[in-house]
């Protein structure tokens, strides 16, 4: 509860934030991932550059796809009509982060920069093939969500780089869902599954997006589960096959804790894949 000493700078623009950050500094947005870690003295940055009030990082725009400012709060995303229309699973996931107080302050950019493996939004971003827009002293770049999350609390961000926004494809013609099995203690995901199905007029599945988080060290795209669904009518046999496939898709990335071990989470990924498909098909 007693963080180490740090300097504090409030930046008015992205450029100012990038020029202010020092080697031992961190960007502070909503503070709902970083501050708890600092209060426990698990991390002790010497400087915080507050990016929470930079206008360029705010807002959600829809123009053939979604561009979500890094500073958009979970609540803003969960309640955005554009997000609900273009990527219902993302609205759903952001609506399941923490509690209302956390969602009012916590931001998408801060969330993915922290890269907690049991957090909800990354699973959807990886499933739908979102990209993370990054700016640094040397310019800007864009990284696919699947490459952005590297490992436990580890991302593709380099020192001094800032996430400016996240681009999410328009999936309004997909049926999507994010279904979470919350840890009873923390309410983070024991397992979270995102499914987005593109169905053809003839009732067959054109393609499927599937990703799993919570059970893994990072959100993992599940290609064999996707393959098990594509081209089928998403009947029981196909869904059961996908549920089996998802367990092997995540097998090399499994993570667990003292109460909910890896083996259990792996099995639950299959169960919750089935439930996610059912919710997506509504």
């Amino acid at each position: 509860m007693w963080p180490n000493k740090f300097d504090y700078v409030r930046a008015g623009s992205v450029d100012e934030a990038l020029s202010s950050i020092t080697d031992d500094g961190k960007f502070l947005a909503g503070g709902h991932s970083l501050l708890p870690v600092m209060k426990l003295r698990l991390d002790a940055p010497e400087q915080l550059v507050d990016i929470g009030r930079i206008p360029e990082l705010q807002g959600i725009s829809a123009n053939g796809g979604l561009t979500i400012g890094a500073g958009a709060t979970h609540d803003a995303i969960a309640t955005s009509a554009d997000v609900q229309a273009m990527c219902g699973a993302l609205a759903s996931a952001c609506g399941q982060v923490g509690d209302q107080g956390v969602r009012n302050f916590g931001t998408l950019g801060g969330n993915i920069a922290h890269a907690d493996p049991a957090s909800d939004p990354p699973t959807v971003l990886v499933a739908v093939g979102a990209s993370v827009n990054i700016q640094g002293a040397g310019g800007s770049r864009s990284v696919g969500a699947g490459d952005f999350f590297v490992d436990l609390f580890e991302t593709a961000l380099d020192d001094g780089e800032l996430i400016t926004s996240v681009s999410v494809p328009d999936l309004s013609d997909h049926q999507s869902a994010y279904v979470k099995f919350p840890h009873p203690a923390s309410r983070y995901a024991i397992v979270g599954v995102c499914v987005a199905l593109k169905m053809n007029d003839d009732g067959s599945c054109d393609h499927a997006h599937v990703a799993v988080g919570g059970a893994t060290v990072k959100a993992v795209r599940c290609s064999s589960a996707e393959a098990a669904l594509a081209g089928t009518t998403v009947d029981d046999a196909a869904v059961n096959a996908a549920a089996e496939a998802v367990k092997s898709d995540i097998s090399e990335w499994l993570a667990g804790d003292i109460a909910y071990p890896e083996s259990y989470r792996q099995q639950m990924a299959g169960v919750f894949l089935k439930r996610a498909v059912a919710v997506a098909q509504g």
Partner: peptide
Amino acid sequence: LLTGSMMDYCMPKADM
């Protein structure tokens, strides 16, 4: 103590 915080030590919640 592995359950050193409420992240791991499961306090009951009203919705249970």
